[in-house]
């Protein structure tokens, strides 16, 4: 039997049954260790209750033209702005401007007078200030990113437009975010 045969001489590299056992056992051990590690890693991902907190409703009837409100959704601010006619016109006009992250205004709104977007700068996550900056939209004070009246990035270190969350109009004056 190979198992009881004397050990292969020094320099003899032919794999033996013992080598096979050592390699397969170590490989299974490694797979087992990795599987045991996973719960320790995955516990840090969002838990079930955090995932469940996923929608917020908002009544729009109190928001006058030119006003915005900020609501908290999933721990993050969402801007809901009742845009003025000039802002809408400006946003449309800028569709053809040099945009770092090109997007038409109409693709960013469901109704032109209501702009609903995340109030989280796409640079490093600060909350931009409304109706500030070089483009009449939002300005992030943290590292100086300018967004226009459609929430598109125009200048500064942020790479992307302010993202649009999922939302639906439940009626003319009510929306659900998430």
């Amino acid at each position: 039997m190979a198992g009881t045969a004397p050990h292969s001489q020094a320099g003899n590299a032919a794999p033996t049954r013992r080598d096979f056992i050592v390699i397969t056992a170590s490989a299974f051990g490694a797979v087992g260790a990795a599987a045991a590690l996973w719960p320790f890693v995955h516990q840090m991902n969002p838990s079930a209750d955090v995932l469940a907190l996923s929608s917020t409703e908002l009544d729009l009837s109190h928001i006058a033209t030119g006003q915005s409100v900020t609501v908290l959704w999933r721990g993050k601010p969402v801007f809901v702005r009742h845009r003025t006619a000039e802002e809408i016109a400006q946003a449309k006009k800028d569709d053809t401007a040099a945009l770092p992250d090109p997007a038409k205004d109409e693709t960013r709104v469901k109704k032109p007078e209501w702009l609903v977007m995340m109030g989280v700068c796409t640079h490093l996550g600060c909350v931009p200030l409304g109706q500030k900056g070089d483009f009449g939209g939002w300005f992030c004070p943290c590292h100086g990113s300018h967004y226009d009246t459609s929430g598109r990035i125009r200048k500064g270190p942020a790479p992307l437009n302010l993202p649009i969350p999922e939302y639906t109009f439940l009626s003319d004056t009510r929306i659900r975010i998430g």
């Binding site: 840090m44 991902n45 969002p46 838990s47 955090v50 999933r74 721990g75 993050k76 640079h123 490093l124 996550g125 600060c126 943290c142």
Partner: peptide
């Protein structure tokens, strides 16, 4: 918020890593 968001700069894995660090969708109790 700013420092953990640094990891979102990584392509593809950026956002999952940030959510993993936060344990949610923003810096919060977890």
């Amino acid at each position: 918020t700013v420092i953990t968001n640094l990891f979102s700069a990584l392509p593809v894995v950026g956002d999952p890593i940030v959510h993993w660090l936060w344990g949610g969708f923003a810096v919060d109790n977890p």
